[in-house]
Design a binder for these strands. Structure first.
Lengths: 133, 133
DNA sequence: CTCAGTGCAAACTATTTGCAGATTT
DNA sequence: AAATCTGCAAATAGTTTGCACTGAG
């Protein structure tokens, strides 16, 4: 129910917002940079400005609809927040991104934070390398 | 032996290089952004251009003398590479950075990479939150 | 009809580059 | 002296903002 998500975020249901959310929901690719989203929309004959893409993405992040990642390199990537936390493996040659989740690591992070008197709010774990073959 | 490190990297031993390395070696702070280094040098009456700071930092990273981190936020930070790998906890209020190392997590990362047929080359783990009290 | 949202162009921030003069070896 | 290095200013890349017009409710 994408349109409801937009409404519940206190935002009006506009073309760019619906289309950006739809793209993130229906694409087989999970991670997009702002530029990629922009070009994808243009390719589908949806006229938007790059500024709107950035604005909408920022709003969606605030609303908790999507997540923003700061991998190595110059630009950020965005993905739909499907509620299940996960970390990433990034192929440094191809740019391919694969998600994983590991309870042992999650647990250890909490223990370490505890040890240091650190109130853990979020974390980011990214493995860089190459997928074999 | 900082000057030797510079030489061994195939770089000439110049004022800016020596001073940047010295700052990173002797400061109680471990992590600096390029701007911070720049201002720190100016404060110590060492005239450099910001472009030189960026150039030298890039060269030092290539030479393996320092490490570059991409924490959340706009700018990168640099720290001396003391050879011992570690991850980071970042206080989102104060900006304070504390290092930690956990063998269990390191081990799990290797196992996960193995499972996925992923040749692990590096990784980045950062905990975000606040130090209590 | 009203106010939020949009596209455009200009502004901004972090970083990089071209170049002529300065430094290291 | 030769080659690298530097500071400056201009360029770049990603992202943000001001503004007048457009569109959702």
């Amino acid at each position: 129910m994408d349109k409801n998500d937009i409404k519940q975020a206190g935002l009006k249901v506009t073309r760019p917002r619906v289309e950006i959310l739809k793209l993130l929901e229906t694409s087989d690719k999970q991670h997009f940079s702002a530029e990629e989203i922009y070009h994808e929309l243009l390719k589908n004959n949806i006229k938007v400005g790059i500024a709107t893409v950035y604005r909408v993405l920022t709003q969606f992040v605030s609303a908790g609809l999507i997540i923003k990642h700061n991998f190595e390199g110059d630009q950020c990537v965005f993905e739909l927040d499907r509620g299940e936390h996960h970390d990433h493996m990034v192929d440094m040659k191809t740019g391919k991104i694969v998600e994983f989740h590991d309870e042992i690591i999650e647990q250890r992070q909490k223990e370490i934070a505890e040890q240091y008197g650190f109130e853990l709010m979020e974390h980011s774990l990214t493995l860089y390398g190459e997928f074999k073959q």
